[in-house]
Simulated assay, not measured.
Amino acid sequence: MKLTQSYWIRLIGIIILALLRFGLFGSVNFAMEGAITWQWIIDNTLIPAVIIWETSRLVVVYFHRWYALKPSTKRFTLEVLAVLGGNAVLFTGTMLLHESPKELLAVNPFFLFYGYMYTFLYGVLVAAFYELLFYMEAWKIATQEAEELKKINLLIQLESLKNQVKPHFLFNSLNTLTALVEKDQAQAVKFIAELAQVYRYLLQSNEKGLIALDQELQFTQAYYFLLRTRFGEGISLKVEVTDSVHDCLIPPLTLQILLENAMKHNQVSVRKPLVVSIQNEAEEWLVVSNNLQLKRVAASSTGMGLANIAAKYKILHQPDIIILHEENNFTVKVPLLKPAAVLTS
Rank of each mutant, 00 (worst) to 15 (best):
T229M: 08
I141T: 12
L154D: 08
F134L: 01
A138N: 15
K238G: 10
I235H: 00
T176Q: 05
L121D: 03
L149I: 06
Y130K: 05
K208L: 15
F231K: 03
M136T: 14
T178E: 08
L177S: 11
S205R: 02
L158I: 15
Y135K: 13
I152F: 00
Q144P: 12
L133I: 04
A128M: 13
E182N: 12
V124A: 10
G234M: 11
E182P: 12
Q204C: 10
E137G: 03
V239R: 01
N206Y: 09
A196Q: 10
L177T: 06
N175K: 06
I192H: 03
K166Q: 13
F120N: 02
L149P: 09
Q221F: 08
I141R: 12
L213N: 00
L213M: 01
E216F: 10
L227H: 00
L170Q: 07
Y224L: 03
H168F: 11
L132E: 10
N206R: 10
K140N: 12
F231L: 04
Q185S: 12
N175G: 09
Q218A: 12
F129P: 09
L174Q: 06
F171C: 08
A142P: 06
Y199D: 03
D184C: 02
Q215T: 13
L226I: 06
E194K: 07
Q164D: 14
A212T: 05
K208G: 14
Y201M: 03
L195K: 09
Q187S: 13
V165D: 10
E131H: 13
V181I: 08
A146L: 11
Q144I: 09
L149T: 09
F219N: 00
Q157M: 10
A188F: 00
F120G: 05
F191P: 01
T229E: 09
I141W: 11
L210G: 04
Q197W: 11
F169V: 07
E147A: 15
E182V: 13
L210N: 04
K208P: 15
L217T: 04
F134P: 09
I141M: 12
L217Y: 01
K190C: 05
M136G: 13
T229V: 08
L158C: 15
T220H: 07
Q157D: 10
D214L: 13
A188D: 00
L237K: 04
Q197H: 13
E207M: 02
L133F: 10
A128D: 08
L180M: 02
L180S: 06
H168M: 11
L174E: 04
K162P: 15
E137M: 01
A128R: 06
I152G: 00
E159F: 15
S173K: 08
E145M: 14
T119V: 12
L154A: 09
K150F: 01
R228V: 12
S205Y: 02
N175H: 05
Y122R: 11
Q164S: 15
E240Q: 06
A186F: 00
E240F: 05
S205M: 02
L226E: 03
K190N: 07
K208I: 13
L195R: 07
A188E: 00
F219C: 01
E207S: 02
L177I: 05
